[in-house]
Design a protein around this nucleic acid. Structure first.
Length: 817
RNA sequence: GCGGGCGUGGCGGAACGGUAGACGCGGCGGGCUUAGGACCCGUUGAGCCCACAAGGCUCGUGGAGGUUCAAAUCCUCCCGCCCGCACCA
C-alpha cells in the first residue's frame, strides 16, 4: 500500500489553495451588507523578531480550526494576517549585527511567511500587511492627527518611566515590578515633555462597556478592572492658613476624617519648595524630597521597607473639626495618584499606622465595630459595613456608609469637599526616543508653535540615519535635513518632532486595516469595517490582557466618538491560549528551550504538528510539550491514511449506510460540532474522531458492513479536516470527492441519534451494582422493576426495604435501601 | 496583603451534579514478519476474596467537613502550586 507521505501531500494542497485563492474573501457589496452571515476570525499578529515558535502554532491553528468550521457551515470568513513590524528588537538586532532595521524586519517577515505557508493555515494572503510600511503608518499618523485635533493626544511635561538601557521612556503598562518589560532593567523617574493619549477620559467607559462584550475570559476583565482601578470617595480640602494655601486630598474613607492626626505630601509635590521656604526645616525638607525623588522606583515601591519622612514645620486645618495637623513629606505617598497629598488616619490605615508608630504621632480611633469596642490607642483596620463612628461630633453613632455620605454633604455645603472618583489608570505615554517606529506627524515652529503636519503631506516618512544607537534623544534628531523643514502655516523655519510612537499604537487599529488594506484615500472605508467588525473571535496570548487589549478598546471608542467607525468594542469574543512549556520551563529563546515547528513539520508533517498542539490538552491551559505525544499523532494519521486508502480501493458500493456504526458516526458529528462551536474545546473532538476510527477498524473487514464503513470513514475524514486539512483533502479526493474545504459540514441526524436501547446503570445507595441493556421506551416504574430483577442488585437489596428510587431517564436507577 | 485560577493513574488529560480514568503517551502480553523502533489484536488505578479462572468486594480525584438519592464537579475551612496587582490613600 502507498505510504503516507505528508511532505508530498502538504506541498500539493498548499499549491492548490494558493492557485485557487481558496481563502481569499472579497469585501461585501455595502448595499447587500448584513444579508449574509459573516465571521471575522482574528489572531494577534506576530511580532517579527525571529521565527514562529510552537506558541504561535497553537494560536494560529486554533484560529484555523474555527475558520474552517465556520466556512463549511456557510459563513463568509475573514481570516487575515500581518506583522507588527516596528519595534525595539529589530532595531537592537540592527545595532548589534549591522544593517538597517528594515532589512532585519523584512528578513524575519519573509521567514515567518514561509513558516505560515508551511503550516497550511487558511489565511487570506491578499490582505497581508506590515505596520512598518509607509502605506500603513501613513494612516497611523492620520489617526494620530484626528486624536490630536479632538484633544485626545496632547503633550505635557511629566515624571515618566525612563529605561536607561533602552534609552527611551515607557508607558506605565510596560513597567513590570519597576523594571522595563523588554530588557528587565530598573526604570528611573525623569521629568520630560512627552506625548500622551488621553485614555483616562475613557476610564469609565472602558469599565462600563465591558457589558458589550460577548465572551471574554473573566481573568482578563478582572485584570483590566484592576488596572483601571476605579475608587469612589471624596475630595476634601485642607488648608494651611498662614500661607493661604488649599491642599485637596482624595480619600475613600471620609468617614474617618475625625481620626486624621497628620498630613502627608509626596516628595514631588510642587508646593514643597514654597512650604519649606524660610522654615527651620527648609534644608532638611528639600534634601529629603530630592533624595526620595532620585531613588529607583523599585526601591521606593517596596511596602516592606520602613517608611521615612520629614516634618515641614507647617500645619493644615482639618475642615471637619478645625484641628491643626502637622504636614509631613514622605515617599510612601505617590505624586501620580490622587492629588499627591493625603490625610493620614493611622487608626484605620496600615501605612499611616506604620508611619505614626515610627514618628510617634497620635493614633485616634473613630470607627469601631457596631457590636464591640476597640481598646483605646489601638488601630482597627476593618472594612465591613458593620462599623459605626465614635468621637466624631454630630456624626457619632452613624454607620460608616451613612457617615461617608453625611460628612461629604456637610463638607460640600461649606465648600470644603465633594464626592470624587479616582483612578489608578494614567494617560498612555506614547513617545519613544527610538528610531524604528512611526514618526509623530507634528512640527514645531518658532512663530506658530506646535503645528500638525497637513493631511496631504502624510505620510511623514522615516528618514535614513547612520546611527540607530539611542543616546537619550531620538536617533531621528541626527537627520538634520529631515528635522529642519518649513512651517505649513507661516512658511517660516520649523523643526520636526523626532520621537517615534510606541508600537502599541500601530497594533491598536491593524484589525481595521485588514478589512480594507488597499485603501489609499483613508485608513479604511467605514461601511466595510462596520460590516466585518466586531471581530467574532479574537485569539492570542494572555500577556496582552492589559496592554494591547486595553489600548485597542480605547482606540475603537475614540474612533467611534469621532464618527470613524460605527461600533464601540472591537473584539466580541476573546480567547487566550495557554503557554507552552518544554523541559519544565516556559519556552523562551533565553532559556534555549524553544521548540520550532519546522523540524517536526519536516519529519512528521505539518498536519501532525497542528493536531498535536490541539490534542495536548485544553487550549487555554498551560501545557508541556512531549515528543512522544506528537509521534502518537503521526501514528493516528497513518492509521487514518491506511483506512482511507482501503475504503477508496473498495470503490463505491451499493450497500446502504445503515447500522450501528452509522448511528455511532452521527453521535461523533454531534460531539465534534458541539465541542468546537459551543464549548470552544479542541482536544476532545480529536479524541472523538480517534474513537470512531478505532471502531471502524474493528468492523472494516466485514463485507456486510462496507456501506457503514465507507460512510463512517468519509465522515471521520470530513470531521478532522479543520485540524489536518492536507491529509483531509487528499483522502477526500481519493474517496471520490472534491474540495473538502468548501464541502458543507456534516449534520448530525437527530433521528439517528435516537437509540432503541440503552445501558441502564443501577445503583444501590449511590454505588453502581449492575447494568443492563434495556429499551428506551420503558416507563420509570418499569425501569425500577427491571433494576430490582438484576441478580447483583438483588444481592444488595433482598431482605431490605427500598425506601426510595431515583430514576434518571435514559441513564440510571438509584435504589435507596 | 488583595484579586483570579488550578490540584484526577507512571505521564498529558477525559468526565458540561448521574458508570471516574475516554483519547493519547508509556508499560506488559500476543500476532504478522528474515527482522522491525512498522503494522494489527489484547491488556494496563490500588488493595483484597477465590487453588485458578469466571466472578465479586473494598478503597480511590491534595486534606477535613457539609449539601444531595447521587459530588472530581456545589458550599465551608485548611494545605500546596501558578498567574495578575501591589505604599493607589
Amino acid at each position: 500500500m502507498e505510504r503516507y507521505d505528508p511532505q508530498a501531500i502538504e506541498t500539493k494542497w498548499q499549491e492548490v489553495w494558493e492557485r485557487e485563492d481558496a481563502f481569499v474573501v472579497p469585501n461585501p457589496d455595502p448595499s447587500s451588507a448584513g444579508e449574509d452571515r459573516k465571521t471575522y476570525v482574528l489572531e494577534m499578529l506576530p511580532y517579527p523578531s525571529g521565527e514562529l515558535h510552537m506558541g504561535h502554532v497553537l494560536n494560529y491553528t486554533l484560529g484555523d480550526v474555527v475558520a474552517h468550521l465556520r466556512r463549511r457551515r456557510g459563513f463568509t470568513v475573514l481570516r487575515p494576517i500581518g506583522y507588527d513590524a516596528f519595534g525595539l528588537p529589530a532595531e537592537n538586532a540592527a545595532i548589534k549585527e549591522g544593517g538597517h532595521p528594515r532589512d532585519v524586519t523584512n528578513r524575519n517577515i519573509a521567514a515567518i511567511r514561509e513558516q505560515m505557508k508551511r503550516m497550511g493555515w487558511s489565511i487570506d494572503w491578499s490582505r497581508e500587511l506590515s505596520t512598518a510600511e509607509p502605506d500603513y503608518y501613513h494612516w497611523t499618523q492620520w489617526l494620530f492627527l484626528k486624536f490630536y485635533e479632538a484633544g485626545f493626544a496632547y503633550r505635557k511635561e511629566a515624571f515618566v518611566n525612563w529605561c536607561p538601557n533602552d534609552q527611551t521612556v515607557l508607558a506605565n503598562e510596560q513597567v513590570i515590578d519597576g523594571r522595563c518589560e523588554r530588557c528587565g532593567h530598573e526604570v528611573e523617574a525623569r521629568s520630560l515633555e512627552q506625548w500622551f493619549f488621553r485614555i483616562t477620559a475613557y476610564a469609565d467607559r472602558l469599565l462600563e462597556e465591558m457589558s458589550l462584550l460577548e465572551s471574554w475570559p473573566e481573568r482578563v476583565l478582572t485584570m483590566q478592572r484592576n488596572w483601571i482601578g476605579r475608587s469612589e470617595g471624596a475630595e476634601v480640602i485642607f488648608r494651611i492658613e498662614e500661607l493661604d494655601v488649599d491642599l485637596p486630598v482624595f480619600t475613600t474613607r471620609p468617614d474617618t476624617l475625625f481620626g486624621a492626626t497628620f498630613f502627608v505630601l509626596a516628595p514631588e509635590h510642587p508646593l514643597i519648595p514654597r512650604l519649606a521656604a524660610g522654615t527651620p526645616h527648609e534644608e532638611e525638607v528639600l534634601e529629603y524630597a530630592r533624595r526620595a525623588a532620585a531613588r529607583p522606583t523599585v526601591e521606593r515601591a517596596d511596602p516592606e521597607k520602613e517608611k521615612t519622612g520629614v516634618f515641614t514645620g507647617h500645619f493644615v486645618t482639618n475642615p471637619v473639626n478645625d484641628n491643626r495637623l502637622p504636614v509631613w513629606v514622605a515617599d510612601y505617598v505617590l505624586m501620580e495618584y490622587g492629588t499627591g497629598a493625603i490625610m493620614a488616619v493611622p487608626a484605620h490605615d496600615e501605612r499611616d499606622f506604620a508611619f505614626a508608630q515610627r514618628y510617634e504621632l497620635p493614633i485616634v480611633p473613630v470607627v469601631v465595630p457596631v457590636d464591640g469596642d476597640v481598646e483605646e490607642g489601638t488601630a482597627f483596620m476593618g472594612h465591613s459595613e458593620n462599623e459605626k463612628l465614635i468621637e466624631s461630633a454630630q456624626f457619632s453613632g452613624m454607620t460608616s456608609p451613612e457617615a461617608k455620605k453625611a460628612i461629604v454633604e456637610w463638607l460640600e455645603s461649606r465648600g470644603r469637599g465633594r464626592p470624587a472618583v479616582s483612578y489608578r489608570l494614567r494617560d498612555w505615554l506614547l513617545s519613544r526616543q527610538r528610531y524604528w517606529g512611526c514618526p509623530i506627524p507634528i512640527l514645531y515652529c518658532d512663530e506658530c508653535g506646535m503645528v500638525p503636519v497637513p493631511e496631504e503631506d502624510l505620510p511623514v516618512l522615516l528618514p535614513e540615519v547612520d546611527e540607530y544607537l539611542p543616546k537619550g534623544r531620538s536617533p531621528l534628531a541626527a537627520a538634520e535635513d529631515w528635522v529642519n523643514t518649513t512651517c505649513p502655516k507661516c512658511g517660516g523655519p520649523a523643526r520636526r518632532e523626532t520621537d517615534t510612537m510606541d508600537t502599541f499604537v500601530d497594533s491598536s487599529w491593524y484589525y481595521l486595516r485588514y478589512c480594507d488594506p488597499e485603501n489609499d484615500g483613508a485608513p479604511f472605508d467605514r461601511g466595510i469595517v462596520d460590516y466585518w467588525l466586531p471581530v467574532n473571535q479574537y485569539i492570542g496570548g494572555i500577556e496582552h490582557a492589559i496592554l494591547h487589549l486595553l489600548y485597542a478598546r480605547f482606540f475603537t471608542k475614540v474612533m467611534n466618538d469621532l464618527g470613524i467607525v460605527g461600533f464601540r468594542e472591537p473584539f466580541a469574543r476573546l480567547f487566550n491560549q495557554g503557554m507552552l512549556y518544554y523541559r519544565g520551563a516556559k519556552m523562551s529563546k533565553a532559556k534555549g528551550n524553544v521548540i520550532a515547528p519546522d523540524a517536526y513539520a519536516e519529519r512528521l508533517g505539518a498536519d501532525a504538528v497542528r493536531l498535536y498542539v490541539l490534542f495536548m490538552g485544553p487550549a487555554e491551559d498551560d501545557k508541556e510539550w512531549q515528543d512522544s505525544g506528537i509521534e502518537g499523532m503521526a501514528r493516528f494519521l497513518g492509521r487514518l491514511w491506511r483506512l482511507g486508502l482501503e475504503v477508496a480501493a473498495q470503490g463505491a458500493n451499493g450497500a446502504p449506510p445503515e447500522g450501528p456504526l452509522v448511528n455511532r458516526t452521527h453521535e461523533t458529528i454531534a460531539k465534534v460540532t458541539d465541542d468546537i462551536e459551543r464549548r470552544f474545546q479542541f482536544n476532545t473532538p480529536i479524541a472523538a474522531v480517534m474513537e470512531l476510527v478505532n471502531e471502524i477498524y474493528h468492523v472494516k473487514d466485514d463485507p456486510e458492513r462496507a456501506g457503514e464503513v465507507r460512510f463512517a470513514t468519509e465522515t471521520a475524514v470530513s470531521l478532522i479536516q479543520p485540524y489536518v486539512p492536507h491529509i483531509g483533502e487528499e483522502l477526500w479526493e481519493r474517496l471520490g470527492h472534491e474540495r473538502l474545504w468548501e464541502t458543507p459540514w456534516p449534520e448530525a441526524d437527530e433521528a439517528l441519534l435516537e437509540r432503541e436501547t440503552f445501558e441502564l446503570v443501577v445503583q444501590v445507595n449511590g454505588r453502581v451494582r449492575d447494568r443492563a441493556e434495556v429499551p428506551v421506551n420503558l416507563s420509570e416504574d418499569e425501569l425500577i422493576a427491571r433494576a430490582k430483577e438484576l441478580p447483583r442488585v438483588r444481592a444488595h437489596v433482598d431482605g431490605k426495604e427500598v425506601k426510595k428510587a431515583i430514576v434518571v431517564p435514559g441513564r440510571l436507577v438509584n435504589l435507596v435501601v
